[in-house]
Design a protein around this nucleic acid. Structure first.
Lengths: 251, 251
DNA sequence: TGACATTTGTTCGTATATCGCACAAGATGT
DNA sequence: ACATCTTGTGCGATATACGAACAAATGTCA
């Protein structure tokens, strides 16, 4: 790509949108300049442009994102076939298992939920399409990392901020690579309270007919309701059959 | 705002993202130029910029959005206090009523879901935070329109593409304005299969301490499970108590 | 309270990057 | 092999970004 094929004003604007997050909901021009590293004048122009288009609100002092921003992410969910294809199967899976079922894809070091059938709240945080979790300590993340070439997976693990969320969390590169080997061999990943105490989940890859892993699906439950062995016994066969149906529908 | 405070390259880029939707998941440069009305050269630069930043994938012929795009919408959901605040209360509400509970805000002619606790699938389409429905024929839309000044509501109704989704759907401006009066007077809106046959819902406004309506919450169910009268009797008191708790937490 | 320091927002001239057009090159279908 | 449609490129005109200077608001201390 040539230098002139890149619209830096557009790229800067997008970084301004991403400057808003959990801890930063009401931002001044200076705040945005500091977070994004843009010049104050440029940050101001991006923010005023967002406000002019209705993507942000401005009270003269602080900017906040407006619900119109959701159109942007929603473009992906409605335009990509996979989320719409898997949703009904996750509903079925959740129905059959009596637990929450989800599908996700990899984006950098994180998994991104693309569809979900939540049966009942099991986690402290709420998960929706668009939600993100670190790949290294989630069942779907392990499955998706295991599908990558070894050095690619290692690179992502090294890049990840590997925090021990619980005493169970694996954080060592060697441990995690071992785990990925195991996942690759057995065809599924089980997380036993590595993300949050009391939370277990099991995930398997979804491959297209060419054998490429395009997504992962999982079932999550409370640790008190099922041991690791019980999860494999109870959920894995149903998940695999669901997965096979999905695969047959993927071009 | 001065002319030079608007970054047209940014605005054009955002319109390119929105060009992708349900019917348009894989778009060529020419497709995007046609949909957005941009010059082909401009559309191409926007698309290449998106691809360079990882927001889109390019196979040399077609562009598709990548899951990274979801960060943009997610910026809103995580940075705005309201969605995170209401979520646990929707969970409770769904638990108590045994039905799906949601919260939404108005964006133009549409309501946008900002949080949801889905108990079991009742609709043919799947609803998630970010999902949109026309305001004129949804219970939360009626509540949010009723909170606007009369002429503002009329303007939105006139702007809406008022389709009769079912034989029950009200599509006349006068009918709808009457309905808004009723909603305003009684403090709740009930939709009896106007959006989809078999689907009923009841919504109430959520106001902040200053009395401004900031959102609507609803409970939806299947028509066979509850008549309109039964919905009001069964769900309204619980909803109102949930709403009062939320209001007390809103600054 | 008033003077000073500091932070934040806005304006401006200029260097530079982007836009839109016209044309070239390539792909597709008949 | 031709017509048609799509994609890529070069260039002059124009719009944008930068950095600094200015203005306004906010905070600090005697």
């Amino acid at each position: 790509m040539r230098e002139t094929d890149f619209i830096s004003g557009f790229a800067k604007g997008l970084s301004v949108i991403e400057a808003f997050d959990a801890g930063n909901s009401r931002l001044s021009i200076t705040d945005v300049a500091r977070i994004t590293g843009l010049e104050r004048a440029t940050a101001r122009r991006c923010l005023l442009t967002l406000a002019e288009l209705g993507y942000a609100d401005y009270d003269g002092k602080f900017f906040t994102l407006s619900p119109r921003i959701l159109r942007l992410g929603h473009s992906y969910l409605t335009s990509t076939p996979l989320p719409r294809l898997v949703q009904p199967f996750l509903d079925q899976l959740s129905e059959k298992t009596g637990e929450s079922a989800s599908a996700s894809v990899l984006d950098g070091n994180e998994i991104v939920y693309i569809a979900r059938a939540s049966h009942k709240r099991v986690m402290s945080i709420n998960l929706n399409p668009g939600s993100r979790l670190p790949a290294y300590c989630s069942s779907m993340g392990r499955v998706l990392l295991a599908a990558l070439p070894e050095d690619e997976a290692r690179r992502i693990l090294k890049n990840s901020n590997r925090v021990a969320n619980t005493p169970n969390t694996k954080t060592g590169i060697a441990d995690l690579l071992d785990e990925l080997h195991r996942v690759r061999a057995q065809g599924y990943a089980v997380i036993d309270q590595e993300l949050e105490i009391g939370l277990c989940s099991i995930a398997i890859p979804v491959r297209n007919v060419r054998g490429t892993t395009v997504s992962a699906i999982n079932v999550g439950t409370q640790a008190v309701r099922a041991s690791v062995g019980e999860m494999i016994e109870r959920y894995l066969p149903t998940m695999q059959s669901t997965r096979d149906t999905i695969t047959s529908l993927l071009v």
